[in-house]
Write a protein that binds this DNA or RNA. Structure first.
Lengths: 107, 107
DNA sequence: GTCCTTCATCGTCATTTAACGATATAGGCG
DNA sequence: CGCCTATATCGTTAAATGACGATGAAGGAC
């Protein structure tokens, strides 16, 4: 289901460490490898690698093999899609609240 | 931390059933009690109640005692906040990609 | 007061997650 | 070829999650 995918992406975002990782990637977006990320966090390399995997599986980041290093970049396409999906969701959720403030359809 | 809160809210959204619950609340936003939600889902009442609790704890919905019923409504304020926060996050994340396409600052 | 409905909470169980250390693989360098 | 570095994966463990049935408490209705 669509919801499954969206939920999976939201769940992937739903951890402070993973938010941090995304921010780290956003800041130094080029040539950011696992070791770089690990250096910014108080966690073991294997743990960081695991979090990276969650983000990878959710499609929120992409891997770029670079010699012996694996560099990661934000999957901006997917993030954009997700942004749209989330925008659509929140629009849907928030819609009834506004009670069609100025809906032109009313006679 | 701010991230803790945001992550918690995202995690609360990160389950298909909870997305469904939010949609259900959005559709028939008034007088929607636990039984109503349960009727829309193939889950036990206690399970639905648990999911509702997660959404409550994340502040995404609010409870309104109504006699023997507890009615739930979307916490639109919080959802709006979250929408902003998410927008801000995605803006931050997506920013480097656009490479300031038309930033006026450039001579 | 008694009964009935609604629902949150409790206890349980299986699954998943988060964290770690250890390890094996893959690629560059001498 | 042999070594080193980088990192993904494995195995483990504790804790969290998701699901359920049962139960107890709160609040009408008669």
């Amino acid at each position: 289901m669509q919801d499954e995918i969206l939920a999976n992406q939201l769940r992937a975002l739903g951890h402070p460490v993973r938010l941090s990782i995304l921010r780290i990637l956003a800041q130094r977006q080029s040539d950011c490898c696992c070791a770089d990320v690990t250096q910014c966090l108080p966690l073991a390399q294997s743990t960081v690698s695991q979090h990276i995997k969650v983000l990878l599986d959710a499609g929120l980041i992409a891997r770029q093999a670079r010699g012996t290093r694996n560099c990661y970049v934000l999957a901006t396409d997917r993030l954009n899609e997700m942004n749209s999906a989330f925008g659509g969701l929140s629009e849907l959720l928030l819609q009834p609240v506004e009670a069609k403030k100025d809906s032109a359809g009313v006679a």
